[in-house]
Design a protein around this nucleic acid. Structure first.
Lengths: 139, 139
DNA sequence: TATGCTATTGCAAAAAGTTGCAATAAGGAG
DNA sequence: CTCCTTATTGCAACTTTTTGCAATAGCATA
């Protein structure tokens, strides 16, 4: 009875299947909370499921992201990492010490409306990473 | 006398050097306008400079981005691409047809102030990609 | 519980991106 | 113009990510 079972209905409803591989990957992301690189996910999920392959991890992360169960994020070094989808939020990264902070989507929301009216696009999601200097590093 | 010569002073001032490799890469980005993947940059710059290596392209793009001559951007498929640094802007990508639109930084500016006061961070730059459906694809 | 459709996985090979180190060359100083 | 310092490059090995295809296994249906 894993925490990942909670996600099964979401997949079934769209005609997809829950598998041990997906369970292991969701489990790892769920319990880490923070975001992990594909390789980190692979290493950790392998402990639960030694037959898991890198290929599957990459494909699964992309699949889960498309279906809203995990969220991709850009890290300080310009690579993609993934985290379990909780409340919608974005990231603020310190250019000096690398510390991170979450930015609530609420803060961004007003911007969505401005963008929609200016562009004619109907926004679905976004990928926002802000860089700067944290309070400690502003010396 | 290449367009890339314009960038020489910016590098010199920081103690860096202008090289044929950097010239070729800047030239490609300058004349394409749009953003290119590292591989696309490599292929095109190779025509001007056949001895160029992929290693150098990756390192140069990262270097130029750090020094503000080019800007990294996230493409629809989640990969990094680069474009010559003109006015500061962000991207809006259609989830359906892939068409892109630039978002002026002016539109985002007010958000910077809100974020700075809420977070205590001093913002330096950001990496913003918005996804949605363009006017044509909203059927 | 057995059957069938097809979503999903693993394998193998290729492509893309990174790293350490020795060799090269930009450009300031004499 | 030559020399010298050190920023920059290329090479080779390695890691990460992608792709095609055949084999496997969810799960809906009977």
């Amino acid at each position: 009875m894993s925490c990942a079972d909670d996600y099964t209905p979401q997949l079934r409803a769209r005609g997809y299947r829950m598998t041990p591989q997906r369970t292991a990957i969701l489990h790892v992301l769920h319990h880490n909370g923070r975001h992990l690189s594909p390789i980190e996910v692979y290493e950790q999920a392998c402990r639960e499921m030694p037959t898991l392959t890198e290929t599957t991890v990459y494909r699964t992360l992309e699949f889960l992201a498309e279906n809203g169960l995990v969220r991709p994020a850009l890290t300080g070094n310009g690579h993609l990492a993934y985290e379990i989808a909780r409340h919608e939020h974005h990231h603020l990264i310190c250019r000096n010490c690398g510390s991170e902070m979450e930015v609530e989507h609420e803060l961004i929301k007003s911007m969505y409306q401005i963008l929609e009216s200016k562009s004619g696009y109907q926004l679905t999601d976004s990928h926002l990473t802000f860089f700067g200097l944290c309070a400690n590093c502003q010396s």
